[in-house]
Lab assay of single mutants.
Amino acid sequence: TEYKLVVVGAGGVGKSALTIQLIQNHFVDEYDPTIEDSYRKQVVIDGETCLLDILDTAGQEEYSAMRDQYMRTGEGFLCVFAINNTKSFEDIHQYREQIKRVKDSDDVPMVLVGNKCDLAARTVESRQAQDLARSYGIPYIETSAKTRQGVEDAFYTLVREIRQH
């Protein structure tokens, strides 16, 4: 089974770092803004072998026109913010609204991801993020692309959301 996953969120929150940590098991430290990259990885989730087709997208506003296209083809979405960047957390709402509009559905598989949880300088409390996820009816997972904490959990949870859909 193949799953088309799309990673969305503001610029600099760590979308590529999360994806590369999942696929290649290493942490990319330097920031190089993405336009669009796709990665494929075969994994076993709950005993089922599946192929993850992951689209890593641009957070930069100037590429926002490309969003409709990949939102149409994606089956599930990782909505990523950084726990030390309140603005990126506030941006999640717009991504969710755009996904709902493009998919013409209120019920699209999504996982809210709070990345950079290895950093002490948190400005978005776990509780705020949990409340937001609960209001959307989606899971919330904290990750660190640096330490790998929660990385597999985030992507695998999204696959489970798609399966249950």
Rank of each mutant, 00 (worst) to 15 (best):
S144W: 14
R127K: 13
P109S: 05
D37C: 00
G9K: 03
Y3F: 04
G47H: 04
A82M: 06
G47D: 05
Q98K: 11
Q164F: 12
T34M: 00
A145V: 15
G114P: 06
Y39C: 05
Y31I: 14
A82H: 13
R148G: 07
V124L: 12
T143H: 06
G137C: 00
T147M: 09
D37A: 02
V124M: 07
A10E: 04
A121W: 13
G11W: 15
R96K: 07
V8E: 00
R122K: 14
Y39H: 10
F89I: 07
D32V: 12
L132S: 11
E48Q: 07
E61F: 15
I99M: 03
T19R: 02
N25I: 05
S105M: 10
I99S: 02
G137R: 11
H165K: 09
S88A: 06
E152K: 10
F27I: 04
D56Y: 01
D153G: 10
Q149M: 06
A120I: 13
A133R: 10
V159A: 08
T123N: 09
Q94Y: 04
V28E: 09
A120P: 14
D104V: 07
N85Q: 07
Q24T: 07
K146R: 11
M71T: 08
I83S: 09
S88F: 05
G11S: 15
G150Y: 11
T1G: 07
S38V: 11
G14V: 00
I138Y: 02
A82L: 02
N84E: 14
L119H: 14
H93N: 12
A129T: 11
R72N: 05
E142F: 10
A10R: 13
L52G: 03
G150R: 09
L119G: 15
R96E: 01
S38I: 02
E62Y: 15
F155L: 15
D91Q: 07
Q60M: 15
D46T: 05
T34D: 07
Y95M: 09
V13T: 14
R160H: 12
R40A: 02
E2D: 01
D29Q: 01
E152L: 12
C79P: 02
D68V: 00
R40N: 02
E62Q: 12
T86I: 03
H26K: 00
Q94D: 14
E2Y: 00
L119E: 15
P139L: 08
I138Q: 12
L112H: 04
G9Q: 03
V8I: 07
I141N: 13
D107C: 13
I35S: 05
R127M: 14
I92M: 12
K41D: 14
Q98I: 05
K15N: 00
G11Q: 15
T19I: 08
S126F: 10
S88N: 10
S64N: 05
K146S: 15
K100C: 02
E142A: 09
H26V: 01
I92W: 02
L112T: 08
M71A: 03
E152S: 10
T73S: 08
L78H: 02
D32Q: 13
T49K: 06
K87W: 03
D32W: 09
E62A: 09
Q60V: 15
R127L: 12
T73Q: 08
N115P: 13
V13E: 13
L112C: 14
I20M: 02
E97K: 11
V13R: 00
Y156A: 14
K116P: 02
I141W: 01
G14Y: 00
S144F: 14
L51C: 07
T86Y: 04
D106R: 06
M66D: 15
T1E: 02
S105C: 07
S38M: 00
T1V: 03
Y31F: 04
K100F: 08
T57H: 11
V113H: 10
G9H: 03
R134C: 10
R163V: 12
P139K: 10
C79D: 01
D91L: 13
T86K: 00
A58G: 15
E62C: 06
Q128L: 12
H93S: 06
L78R: 01
V28D: 10
S64D: 10
Y31C: 04
R160F: 10
Q98E: 02
I45E: 05
G137L: 11
H93A: 10
Q94T: 11
N84T: 05
T19W: 01
K41S: 07
A17C: 04
G150K: 11
Y95F: 05
S144M: 15
I20P: 00
H93E: 06
A65D: 03
V124H: 13
S105N: 15
D118N: 14
D106A: 01
V111W: 12
M71E: 12
S144T: 14
E2I: 00
E62H: 15
D37V: 03
F89A: 07
V6A: 04
S64F: 04
E48T: 06
I20D: 02
Q130N: 12
V80M: 09
Y39F: 07
E2F: 02
V159W: 12
E30I: 10
C50N: 02
H26G: 13
Y70F: 13
R127W: 14
Y39M: 08
Y63W: 15
D107V: 00
I162M: 13
I92S: 01
S38D: 01
E61M: 15
G74R: 04
A154H: 08
F89M: 06
T157G: 02
Q21C: 11
D37Q: 01
A82V: 12
E161Y: 03
L55W: 13
A58C: 14
S144P: 07
I45D: 10
I83N: 00
R134G: 12
S105Q: 00
N85C: 08
A58L: 07
E142M: 13
E61P: 14
Y136C: 09
G12T: 15
Q128T: 08
T143G: 12
L22V: 05
I20S: 01
G12D: 15
R67H: 10
L22F: 10
K41Q: 02
A154G: 11
L52V: 12
V7F: 06
K41T: 12
N25M: 10
D46H: 08
